[in-house]
């Protein structure tokens, strides 16, 4: 490629210019949150403007850099505010969702991949179609079932059950695809050696499917960690809020605690962003595999 015709390419400085502008636009909101988080104040404005601001003042008001960086917002959001409790709620919900979701998806995915039985096609298709159910339609009955019938309103159990089941279709399809790629010979050999079906599943298939299970687990975790609207609907006790609902609470209605929001948002986002970069390539392949979740 070394000798290719350079005159047809756009000059690199121009490309860099475009990229730099776009990158600035991209990271500006993130820098803005960081600035507010480290400002130590609850205010939405980056600096307090004087009554008759000059252009320099205004310029200072949009530069995302805290005047006196302090971690006060982080310490007080974790101690003065119930945010630590909300984080714990979220962590418990997300971890339990992961455990339950992976268990349900592994067993079902294995059955769909390995066995041929009446109802298999219908089951797989209905999982796919269920992804198209608008959340709001199931939200009202879910509210009635979980809160009124099961009495699980404002509990973590209720949330975990809802999250784990709503995550099933995606996880099952993903795991089924992976199980399909594991050759059957291994299992048949084990069968001849006298291994029982549960042994084959636990000792041979699951270890081989580790990478896919890890991805499924991380997806379930992110689903439980990030979900907002179901939690906001099912939970109305303040000390049972999950972190997303709590963050909305800081800046919703007449409450304007932007400092707490910013600090909390950063704390919540760090694990998600880390997971995201780790999972990125699976995300792309998994999403384009045909899931249409709203």
């Amino acid at each position: 490629m070394a000798g290719s015709k350079r005159e047809e390419q756009l000059p690199h400085w121009l490309l860099h210019a475009v990229l730099i502008v776009m990158t600035l636009v991209t990271i500006y909101p993130i820098l803005w949150v960081l600035t507010i988080a480290f400002s130590g104040k609850q205010s939405l404005a980056l600096v307090d403007l004087p009554a008759a601001p000059t252009t320099a003042d205004r310029l200072r008001a949009v530069v995302p850099w805290p005047g006196h960086p302090t971690a006060a917002n982080f310490t007080s959001v974790m101690t003065d505010q119930p945010f630590a409790r909300w984080l714990v709620n979220s962590a418990i919900v997300a971890l339990a969702t992961t455990a339950l979701g992976v268990f349900l998806a592994c067993t079902a995915g294995y059955a769909f991949s390995r066995f041929r039985f009446p109802g298999r096609r219908v089951g797989l298709m209905s999982f796919l179609v269920s992804q198209m159910f608008p959340g709001v339609l199931t939200l009202i009955p879910l509210y009635i079932i979980v809160v009124k019938w099961l009495g699980l309103g404002s509990t973590r159990t209720g949330l975990v059950l809802c999250y784990a089941t709503t995550a099933i279709p995606f996880c099952v399809w993903m795991l089924k695809g992976y199980f399909d790629t594991i050759p059957k010979d291994l299992e048949e050999a084990a069968l001849i050696d006298g291994a029982s079906a549960p042994t084959i599943f636990l000792r041979i298939v699951l270890p081989l499917a580790k990478p896919a299970i890890a991805v499924t687990a991380l997806f379930s975790f992110m689903w439980g960690w990030n979900e907002f609207i179901l939690a906001a609907t099912l939970i109305d006790k303040e000390d049972m809020y999950t972190a997303p609902v709590g963050l909305g609470f800081f800046v919703g209605g007449f409450s304007q605690q932007w400092g707490y929001f910013a600090a909390g948002a950063i704390i919540v986002s760090i694990p998600v962003v880390a997971l995201f970069f780790y999972l990125q390539k699976y995300l792309v392949s998994g999403l384009t595999a045909g899931s249409v979740k709203g």
């Binding site: 089951g123 339609l137 009202i140 879910l142």
Partner: peptide, 28 residues
């Protein structure tokens, strides 16, 4: 005949029926 397969999918299907499909039809 297919008890093994049904055993494997029962937990997931049960969850889906109670918290996904039933709410959907109840919503309708």
């Amino acid at each position: 005949k297919n008890r093994e397969a049904y055993l494997y999918i029962t937990p997931a299907i049960l969850g889906m029926i109670v918290l996904v499909f039933f709410p959907f039809f109840y919503g309708i």
